[in-house]
């Protein structure tokens, strides 16, 4: 955006910036997206490495939250068993809109090594949640997760919030009509 460069320029625009509200909101949202910790298996170890000082996830503005009420997105790092699928869905439903999902690792993407004989594994978390970013790998390198995170931030930046909110409101209304 180069906003800061212009703010430093006292002659040119006198501190006035032109833009849309949506741009400003999206900029703010994408740079402070708090995430819900949902470590399930060995991917969570790599995920912890991303959190730790070497890769330092917080510099992207991502702060770990333990409560779904305060989280903007959830990183599903690991194997989602059928037993956990019910709980995961419930936790996701408790998150406030707008909310996003990163599926980390083969298991969360497609069932991974359990795809054929895993009687207890959900074959891909996209069967129960709308996934925004898939991070492949078994487990993915920390760099891969960081890339996934940056992709999610890009996605948030490009979002048309007002149109999305309108669409959601319409869907809500339609659902209410269906319940009646």
């Amino acid at each position: 955006m180069g906003l800061l460069n212009r703010l430093n320029d006292p002659i040119g625009l006198d501190g006035i910036i032109f833009g849309t509200v949506e741009d400003l909101l999206n900029w703010g949202r994408s740079k402070s997206d708090w995430y819900l910790q949902f470590g399930l298996a060995c991917c969570a170890i790599e995920f912890m490495a991303v959190n730790a000082s070497h890769f330092d996830m917080m510099r992207y503005g991502c702060i770990p939250r333990s409560s779904p009420r305060q989280a903007d997105f959830v990183i599903i790092s690991g194997t989602v068993t059928l037993k956990m699928a019910d709980r995961l869905k419930r936790v996701y439903e408790q998150m406030a809109e707008p909310k996003y999902v990163i599926a980390m690792g083969s298991c969360a993407n497609s069932g991974g090594p359990y795809w054929e004989h895993g009687y207890h594994v959900l074959k891909g978390v996209d069967r129960i949640l709308p996934v925004d970013v898939y991070v492949p790998g078994c487990p993915p390198r920390p760099e891969a997760l960081q890339e996934g995170l940056i992709l999610l931030q890009k996605k948030i930046r490009m979002e048309e919030i007002f149109r999305k909110r309108k669409r959601l409101a319409e869907e809500d209304l339609a659902n209410q009509m269906n319940y009646k």
Partner: peptide, 20 residues
């Protein structure tokens, strides 16, 4: 009982399809 040799994995659990 999943570890029995004659165990057949279920088609569905709580509305989720189990086979890939």
């Amino acid at each position: 009982y999943p570890l029995r040799k004659d165990y057949k994995e279920p088609e569905e659990y709580h509305g989720n399809r189990v086979p890939y």
